[in-house]
Design a protein around this nucleic acid. Structure first.
Length: 540
RNA sequence: GCGCCCGUAGCUCAACUGGAUAGAGUACCAGACUACGAAUCUGGGGGUUACAGGUUCGAGUCCUGUCGGGCGCGCCA
């Protein structure tokens, strides 16, 4: 049981003994920001003051008297009525043995027995990844690792849109480049893809098949599309894999559509459909939406929304307890219509959760670079990773809450890549490794004996908070909190290192304790960086 | 015009979901390696939390309005 839980129970009992009602969810235990305010604090007395008909400070004193909890060293009343808890040190020191024993599993929470489907990136296979995808990939992948740590059974999924207009344009664009290679003038429309990567694809077709597909017939039409999708998807997979991002399942829209799924789904939804101006609309306003949405265009073709409904029904049918989509914030209008569609099939409103990743605005050479796959002007994910490195890029995109807008200065990122805070964390890890190497042969003492100074206690407290940090970060879908934790840990370690000598051959007892502490820090750092998808090097 | 997100130090962002003196990084200034890695540490300046009201013991956080920015507004995806 964590300290927070112990204190909650003790407070609940204390309140009850005074005849006050304190539901456990109204009891908030916080880590004190200032060490002068002890280890934990609660505002309970202030919240119950009205109910008790007493001044907050007086009530706090009464509560404090009634609290019985062994791990508490002393209690103080402070400020407007805070109750501050000072915990006994021995419980804190146990954390070292626990970390060393559990190793890479330290901080992992027991299985919740719940399956989550997490979909992220799902970039269309029509061109290279840009920095918006980079942020979604970093956030989605870290979120998957974080939720796994928190005890969920996570399936990582990528949805491949291999149907529709964009794909037609892809096929047409490659065909145009292919014809260009045979000396014909380039014929690209406004809606086609102008990126130069398609030239390489066209060249590879010419190398492999010569002039076989110059004829304008159905076979060559389908060939260019198929070849384009396969090549673009292979590139996406490689770029993501090089970025440390992988998926358990790739679901193709073309597979979803097989077997008349769209027709069957329309039939299922028939009570929610109506015709207007030749098109078919879904009455999503009966649920959460502010407008009804077209599912079949007046030309008889389904809109993008229709197969998306089928896809989400498909995910739901696979037995997940919860669905999470990580989407760019420009899709926010999409969430209510999809939730509505799921509710038509009987799923609760919160079955589908959408985590939005805010747009990245990119500045280079003082001007904003607008995202555009068509014109090929956007900054490519691959170029950034090559220029700055995987660890620095991942840290940069995970460091801040994904819900905040991010202005990304490309020139600055290049200049500052060597001062990226990720190295601060990695350096702490490498220092730990170095110390453990130097101290090889000295037995580690994980009892925590003799670790009493300010820096040591500060590290111990932080280490003990690992699990509650995981819980909070997972609950808030906030991998950036793991980055903040890693940075804090590094800071506390560097501070300790600067003020204390670890290896002292004349004091082996303390050295043994400190080396065990170092070992624990190293493990915690490696686990935290692992969630971020950042490496933990032994040397730098 | 309507809806969603946002506005915090020169810049990029935090603030444990309403708590105590609003914190980090970066940039700038001044210090610290003849003992374990200076990719580090110590100290300093830098704020009317866009603005104006309101709610209460307490507001960067909640409510209303104003200003400013981004995104989205039935047959593009």
């Amino acid at each position: 049981m964590t300290n927070e839980e112990k204190l909650k129970i003790a407070l609940e009992k204390a309140a009850a003994s005074l005849g006050l009602e304190a539901a456990s969810n109204t009891i908030v235990i916080e880590r004190s920001r200032d060490t002068a305010h002890g280890d934990y604090s609660t505002n309970l007395a202030m919240r119950l003051a009205k109910q008790a008909g007493k001044a907050p400070r007086d009530l706090a004193a009464l509560l404090a008297e009634k609290i019985q909890e062994e791990a508490v060293e002393k209690i103080e009343i402070a400020g407007p009525g805070f109750i501050n808890f000072f915990m006994k040190k021995d419980a804190l020191q146990n954390v070292i043995a626990k970390i060393i024993e559990e190793g890479e599993n330290y901080g992992k929470l027991p299985s919740k027995g719940k399956k989550i489907n997490l979909e992220y990136v799902s970039a269309n296979p029509t061109g290279d990844l840009h920095l918006g995808h980079t942020r979604c990939a970093a956030v989605g992948d870290s979120l998957a690792r974080l939720l796994t740590y928190d005890g969920y059974d996570v399936t990582r999924e990528f949805y491949v849109n291999d149907c529709g207009n964009q794909i037609e344009h892809l096929g047409h664009s490659i065909r145009a480049r292919y014809h260009e290679l045979f000396g014909e003038p380039l014929q690209l429309g406004d809606d086609d893809y102008h990126g130069h990567d398609l030239i390489d694809i066209a060249k590879s077709i010419k190398d492999k098949y010569g002039d076989k597909y110059l004829a304008d017939n159905e076979e060559s039409h389908d060939f260019f599309i198929r070849y384009g999708i396969d090549n673009e998807l292979a590139k996406l997979k490689k770029d993501l894999a090089d970025f440390g991002v992988s998926f358990d399942v790739f679901t193709y829209e073309s597979d979803i559509r097989k077997g008349g799924t769209i027709e069957k789904t329309l039939d299922f939804l028939k009570d929610h459909l109506y015709e207007s101006e030749g098109a078919t609309f879904l009455r999503t306003t009966d649920y959460l939406d502010d407008k009804d949405r077209p599912v079949i265009k007046s030309n008889g073709q389904p809109t993008y929304f229709m197969p998306d409904i089928c896809y989400h029904y498909n995910k739901a049918a696979r037995g997940f307890d919860h669905l999470i989509d990580v989407l760019g914030a420009d899709h926010h209008g999409y969430v209510n219509r999809m939730k509505s569609a799921l509710m038509m099939k009987g799923y609760p409103e919160d079955y589908l959760e959408v985590t939005f990743v805010q747009v990245v605005r990119v500045f280079r050479d003082g001007a904003e670079v607008k995202m555009s796959k068509r014109t090929g002007k956007a900054i490519a994910h691959r170029d950034l990773v090559e220029d700055v490195g995987v660890d620095a890029v991942r840290y940069f995109f995970i460091e801040r809450s994904q819900s905040s807008h991010l202005d990304f200065n490309y020139n600055l990122a290049m200049e500052q890549s060597s001062s990226n805070p990720v190295y601060y964390c990695q350096y702490a890890h490498a220092r730990c490794a170095s110390l453990l190497n130097l101290g090889e042969g000295i037995a580690l003492d994980p009892s925590g004996k003799g670790l009493n100074n300010e820096e040591e206690l500060s590290i111990l407290k932080h280490l003990a908070d690992f699990s509650s940090m995981i819980e909070g970060a997972a609950r808030d879908r906030a991998p950036y909190k793991v980055a903040a934790y890693a940075h804090d840990l590094a800071e506390k370690f560097h501070e300790f290192y600067a003020k204390n000598r670890v290896i002292d051959r004349d004091n082996l007892e303390l050295t043994s304790s400190r080396l065990a502490l170092i070992k624990a820090v190293k493990i915690a750092m490696e686990n935290a960086l692992g969630i971020l998808g950042v490496s933990a090097p032994e040397k730098m």
